[in-house]
Amino acid sequence: MKDKRTEIKQELENTAPFLAGLKEKDKEGFVTPPAYFHNLPDRVLDRLQQPAQPVKQSPRAGSTIITWLGYLFRTPYAVRLATLLLLLAGGLYLLLPSTPSDTEVLFGELSPEEAGNYVSDNLHQFEEELVLEIAREYPDLSVLPAPPRETKETDAYYDELLEGLEEESLKDIL
């Protein structure tokens, strides 16, 4: 059976030749004070004979939290924390379904006819300009009042109408 040291050295030579060479020196550099090991058993036995030390009070929760917060808010960690929070917020914004507007909720499931009926029933609630604009854009929608005719036609119509009226009747109307 191969000597353990030789086996370890061969193992190192294949993967880490520098470490293999360093092992040859066989030195670590750790030293102890003089007579350290001679006195150690006495020191340990002395400690064993002493009455048990009172239980060390653990640091208060508050100070632990402050320590951890101090640790978290050190510049490199704070930057990482902020980046993480931003990513989380962005991810939530993208992942969560967007909330539909009130109008989308109200009309989302209505057919065009139902919508038209609703508008005609509640016409007084809509602004006049908006209604006229829609009427111009969608002339086929019957629910809306007819758009005003061209000015000349309108004038001629009213002229004819006025001519047909008796003076007395006109005074009554006004």
Partner: peptide
């Protein structure tokens, strides 16, 4: 004071 290794041992540690 209780380490007397060379520079290379320090680097190894």
């Amino acid at each position: 004071p209780y380490f007397n290794g060379e520079e290379i041992q320090r680097h190894l540690q």
